[in-house]
Design a protein around this nucleic acid. Structure first.
Length: 369
RNA sequence: GCGAUAUUGGUGAAGUGGUUAACACGCUGGUUUGUGGCACCAGUAUGCAUCGGUUCGAUCCCGAUAUAUCGCC
């Protein structure tokens, strides 16, 4: 089986849904933690289950370089390799086009993208076919199309060419995709240009994927532009397929995106800021490095049910962070992932009760106070 | 008691007779959105042991004092 999305109900545009996968059923909206190198940094699979993680991400580019897709295939696939017993989505390496291919004109060609390996500087070429082939071998549950994620801003002319090329890449990827247990998602691009988003979306849907993502957001544009990018693409997506907003995980952005009809999210934010000493709370983000927490012997959040909040104080976690002890980032990662997953749980309840907008307003009021 | 050397921020220190005293760490904030790297950015000594002197101008030169270290009686 691939993947099945069932829309349970709407609350305005917000959607409550169910996603059937090879590894169980999950409710949406859902937040997916990012485990680029086949591990959500510092957390064990058991800890992920405990915070309520469903689908987890891994990255094609990184696993291609190390340990190599053939090694993972020999290990029995990504699930066995990393011992994660829930669904896995692999990103295509498309985002690395954005971060690694510095000279867009030269490095991005019709054939694919030329990278310099961040490990040894060797010249590499990742193509749509190669990306899908690697993902087929990794045996993730969801593979992503290989796309170009252009920075912001770029000219209309550049974006138009990029969108068209990404569409050709999407077709090429789909043509070689041959893992019957793996879903393949298409990615809508188009930057902030309404007509290009519409074009990208309609053409991507024509190719017919198992799910669709909105890509190219959160690359430097303002919040208003980002929300418009979502609106501009999502209206042309089929209601019976899951909708994934790539790379977004700020709590307020999640709420804004759910309001616009997004079902799933992924983001490095909870784990990255955790390693830098920061924690999400209902009252906004806090920085445990701040001196005011030195002798604060209360949990990060009194009402949070995560392992970190049930067992440790801000003063202790601050001590771990300032002394660069690894447990500090680990505890905050557990908390931050739990925070976003709990947020999606509450969002689902709110949609169920037709009070999503009230819930959103109340959350944001408290969070941004 | 005599002599030598030293004294620069919270710490380790660089430095120069002439605008805002380098750098590092620490400290205080901030940033982070499909993780190249896990880090990045900003602020942080109105003062160079103290008191005098020379000089247009002294953290830098001179003297005294204090403290520290080393050596000698």
């Amino acid at each position: 089986m691939k993947i099945e999305y069932k829309l349970i109900k709407n609350d305005n545009k917000a959607r409550l849904g169910k996603l059937k996968t090879n590894y169980g059923e999950y409710d949406t909206p859902m937040f997916m933690p990012v485990g680029t190198r086949a591990t959500v940094k510092s957390l064990s699979p058991d800890e992920l289950y405990e915070v309520g993680s469903g689908i987890a991400l891994a990255n094609t580019y990184h696993l291609w370089l190390r340990p190599g897709e053939d090694t993972i295939k020999k290990a029995g696939g990504l699930h066995k390799f990393m011992n994660y017993k829930r669904p896995i989505l692999t990103d295509s390496g498309g985002f690395q086009v954005f971060s690694l291919a510095k000279n867009k004109e030269k490095d991005i060609t019709e054939e694919g993208v030329h990278f310099k390996s961040h490990l040894d500087g060797s010249n590499l070429l990742l193509t749509p076919e190669k990306s899908i082939e690697i993902q087929n071998k990794l045996d993730s549950d969801i593979a992503m199309s290989f796309d170009e994620c252009p920075p912001y801003p770029v000219s209309y002319e550049y974006m138009k060419k990029s969108v068209e090329r990404t569409l050709r890449w999407a077709k090429r990827g789909k043509d070689v995709h041959n893992n019957p247990n793996q879903a393949l998602f298409g990615i809508v691009q188009g930057g902030e240009f309404t007509d290009l988003r519409e074009y990208s979306c309609k053409e991507t849907v024509k190719i017919d994927f198992d799910g669709y993502s909105i890509g190219g957001t959160s690359v430097g544009e303002s919040k208003e532009v980002m929300y418009k990018m979502i609106d501009d693409g999502i209206r042309y997506l089929p209601v019976d397929k899951v909708r994934y907003l790539m790379g977004v995980g700020d709590p307020i952005d999640i709420l804004e995106a759910v309001e616009r009809g997004i079902d799933i999210f992924d983001c490095v934010l909870p784990t990255r800021i955790a390693r830098h000493g920061q924690a999400f709370t209902r009252n906004g983000k806090i920085n445990l490095n701040n001196a005011r927490f030195k002798e604060d012997f209360t949990p990060v959040e009194e009402e949070c049910d995560c392992y970190a909040c049930r067992n440790f104080t801000k003063g202790y976690i601050r001590h771990l962070i300032t002394t660069k002890e690894t447990l500090g980032g680990r505890l905050l990662s557990i908390h931050n992932i739990r925070f976003l997953i709990k947020l999606t749980e509450e969002i689902r309840e709110a949609i169920k009760d037709d009070i999503f907008l009230e819930y959103k307003e109340q959350f944001i009021n408290k969070y941004s106070k």
